[in-house]
Amino acid sequence: MSKSKEISLIGILAAVNIASRIALQSLPNIKPVTSLIILSVIVFGLSFGIKLTFVTTIVSNIYLGMGIWTFFQIFAWIVICLLTQGVVDIFHKVKKEPPLLFMAVFSFCMGYVFGFIVSLEQFVVGGVGLFISYYSVGIAFDTMHAIGNFAFYLLCAPFFMKLFIKEKEHFL
């Protein structure tokens, strides 16, 4: 993939993420961002996912509010990218594409991973006590995020996977 093609793809996908984050901010934590990042890591690889994460988080937080959590959101999505890459590598070792339902369940789990890492912000600020209380309050919201991921993955994956792979082959 050429450099300019990569940049334009990152721009388009980041725009989708940012628009969805801003448009769906009234819904509690239900956003397609995590699903799209997982999809892009599966098709385009780890470095593409990380670049997409940076652009998405920084630009959307200009609208939603910048703070110490920006760093933790980026970090959480980088960890998700890394975990996804790990899972995909395991599947590639046995010469198989990751099945749809397995990855949907995986993105469901990633909702909790994201919530946990973003809650670590309170661990840094206030220690163990604050972290435990903050995280236990947020578990319901993490569940919403996880369910949203699951639904959006099943919704997006068949269509976007085809689109991404076509894009990749065309401009390799």
Partner: peptide, 20 residues
Amino acid sequence: TTLYVTIIFIGIGMLGFFHS
């Protein structure tokens, strides 16, 4: 990336326990 994530986690852990 693995290296980066590990370093950040160690940093978060140290800061957190310092604040605890």
